[in-house]
Amino acid sequence: MSDLPVKVIHVESGKILTGTDAPKAGQLEAWLEMNPGYEVAPR
């Protein structure tokens, strides 16, 4: 599992989470399930 943060964006508000606020790569799927409305942000 990776500890690198994955940049995500809230589709409706446009809020972007990066760095320490962003979910870790190894926890991404579970985090997205618990935080509806967020998607992986385009690079």
Rank of each mutant, 00 (worst) to 15 (best):
residue 28 L to Q: 04
residue 33 E to L: 10
residue 43 R to P: 13
residue 7 K to P: 15
residue 4 L to T: 15
residue 5 P to C: 10
residue 33 E to P: 01
residue 2 S to M: 14
residue 28 L to S: 06
residue 38 Y to E: 04
residue 2 S to A: 01
residue 10 H to R: 01
residue 41 A to S: 09
residue 42 P to T: 10
residue 12 E to L: 06
residue 33 E to S: 08
residue 11 V to N: 10
residue 1 M to F: 13
residue 29 E to F: 01
residue 15 K to M: 08
residue 31 W to R: 09
residue 1 M to Y: 14
residue 14 G to D: 02
residue 4 L to M: 14
residue 38 Y to N: 05
residue 11 V to L: 12
residue 2 S to Y: 05
residue 12 E to F: 00
residue 35 N to T: 06
residue 23 P to T: 07
residue 10 H to V: 00
residue 41 A to G: 04
residue 12 E to Y: 00
residue 43 R to N: 13
residue 10 H to M: 04
residue 8 V to M: 02
residue 24 K to G: 06
residue 23 P to H: 01
residue 4 L to R: 13
residue 26 G to Q: 11
residue 7 K to I: 09
residue 42 P to Y: 05
residue 27 Q to F: 01
residue 31 W to H: 08
residue 7 K to V: 12
residue 34 M to Y: 02
residue 15 K to L: 13
residue 4 L to I: 15
residue 8 V to K: 07
residue 26 G to W: 11
residue 12 E to S: 10
residue 34 M to S: 12
residue 22 A to F: 05
residue 29 E to P: 10
residue 2 S to G: 14
residue 21 D to L: 11
residue 6 V to S: 09
residue 29 E to I: 02
residue 22 A to Q: 05
residue 36 P to A: 02
residue 38 Y to G: 04
residue 34 M to W: 02
residue 3 D to F: 03
residue 38 Y to Q: 02
residue 22 A to S: 04
residue 40 V to Y: 07
residue 35 N to V: 00
residue 38 Y to P: 02
residue 10 H to S: 06
residue 28 L to T: 05
residue 38 Y to K: 05
residue 43 R to S: 13
residue 40 V to N: 01
residue 5 P to Y: 14
residue 31 W to N: 11
residue 10 H to W: 00
residue 28 L to E: 08
residue 31 W to I: 06
residue 10 H to G: 06
residue 10 H to D: 04
residue 30 A to V: 06
residue 11 V to D: 05
residue 24 K to A: 13
residue 31 W to K: 11
residue 27 Q to N: 14
residue 33 E to V: 03
residue 11 V to S: 13
residue 43 R to M: 12
residue 35 N to Y: 04
residue 5 P to T: 15
residue 41 A to W: 14
residue 29 E to R: 09
residue 6 V to F: 06
residue 2 S to N: 02
residue 39 E to D: 07
residue 1 M to Q: 03
residue 39 E to G: 04
residue 10 H to T: 00
residue 39 E to N: 15
residue 37 G to A: 05
residue 6 V to G: 11
residue 36 P to H: 02
residue 3 D to K: 05
residue 11 V to Q: 03
residue 2 S to E: 15
residue 32 L to Q: 07
residue 7 K to Y: 05
residue 4 L to C: 14
residue 10 H to N: 11
residue 24 K to H: 06
residue 11 V to W: 05
residue 27 Q to A: 12
residue 33 E to I: 06
residue 39 E to K: 09
residue 31 W to Q: 13
residue 12 E to Q: 13
residue 11 V to A: 08
residue 12 E to W: 03
residue 27 Q to C: 11
residue 8 V to C: 03
residue 33 E to W: 00
